[in-house]
Simulated assay, not measured.
Amino acid sequence: MNAPITKRVWVTGASNGLGLALAERLLEQGAQVTASGRPSEQLQALADQHGPYLLVQDYDLSDPAQAAAAARQIKDHWGAIDCLIINAGTCDYLASDTPAPALFEGIVSSNINASANCLASAQPLLKQGSSPQVLAVLSRYSALQIHEPSQPARPDNSLTALFASQRAALGAHAIDLTVVAPQSLKVPVVPVQVIPEQWTAQSAAEVILKHLPDRAPDLVLEALGVNSLWPLPK
């Protein structure tokens, strides 16, 4: 077993895909993990395998009261966290019969709400952690801007704008923030074109966690076949 990158980690969106792979890889490295997500056979199998090292939660984090309850349970269980990983690529709690035109807006708006709630609820836990950091992973779906995309991005209509607005506040408490997202056409992170790759959930998780100790402000993740990383609700 490798030495853990970080000791106590809260991973959201962990029922399948990339979130599940991140939780699994962290457990393999010896971390204590809280995995929030809709109940799934894969997540239950992970709990059966790793027992006391994994706390499984079923909360709708887009609801502020449920996000606060999740944080209280984590405090009671681990005492604090060293890292919050917000896997904001899709949404576990959209209704399965959501019509296609409303699906992507639902993904964006629910992730904006869930991310804001998690950041607020997790900050007291992070302040008590060791070298605390937040890692946010966005997909091409969730990085979209809603409500008049021609207008300026704001925390209430853009997930990237939400995290940008929180960076200074987190930094004031010595909490580093890394945002992993597709290349923005409006504000490119790197000056060259990034070619999309055929990532699997496991290969993406391995690379993301490899770069976690670097604490870079931004990382670019361009993926082909994004459903393998962030399965859409069925």
Rank of each mutant, 00 (worst) to 15 (best):
A216V: 10
K7I: 02
L27R: 13
E24Q: 15
A136E: 00
H173Q: 13
V190S: 07
P4I: 00
S109K: 05
R38S: 02
L18M: 12
T6D: 09
P64A: 06
P155G: 05
S110L: 00
K210C: 04
A116K: 07
A161W: 05
L55W: 03
S36I: 06
W230N: 03
A201L: 03
A116E: 04
G171K: 06
E222K: 11
Q183T: 09
D63M: 04
A68F: 00
T6Q: 11
D214A: 10
F104D: 07
I112L: 14
V189M: 08
Q32R: 13
D82S: 05
G89R: 03
W230S: 03
P101N: 11
P231G: 10
P4R: 04
P4M: 05
A88K: 01
G17S: 12
Q128F: 01
Q166E: 15
D156H: 10
V134A: 06
S139R: 02
L18D: 07
T98E: 02
S228Q: 13
H147R: 11
E222T: 10
G30Q: 08
Q202W: 02
G37Q: 05
R215H: 09
A100N: 07
D58Q: 12
P39C: 13
P213I: 10
A136N: 00
A71K: 07
A14T: 14
P191K: 12
L135F: 01
G79W: 08
V189I: 10
I112S: 05
P39D: 12
I208A: 01
V189G: 01
A174F: 13
P217W: 05
N16W: 05
G30R: 09
I175R: 06
V226F: 04
H147Y: 10
I86Y: 13
A14D: 14
V220L: 02
S62A: 15
A153N: 01
L185Q: 15
V190Y: 05
Q183E: 12
A201N: 03
S109T: 15
P132E: 14
A67D: 09
I208V: 15
L209V: 03
S115T: 15
H173T: 07
N227P: 00
A45T: 03
S15A: 09
V137P: 01
E41D: 15
L144G: 12
A216D: 12
W230H: 11
L209K: 00
P213D: 13
L221F: 03
E105G: 09
S110H: 10
Q42H: 11
A122P: 14
D48V: 04
C118E: 09
D48I: 00
R215V: 04
A122V: 12
S184F: 02
K127A: 09
Q66K: 13
A114I: 07
D48T: 08
L18P: 14
W10G: 10
A102E: 14
Q166Y: 12
A102L: 13
R154S: 14
A116V: 01
P101L: 11
P124I: 00
H173I: 02
T160A: 08
L135H: 02
L135C: 07
A14Y: 13
R8G: 07
S130C: 05
Y53R: 12
R8T: 14
L126S: 10
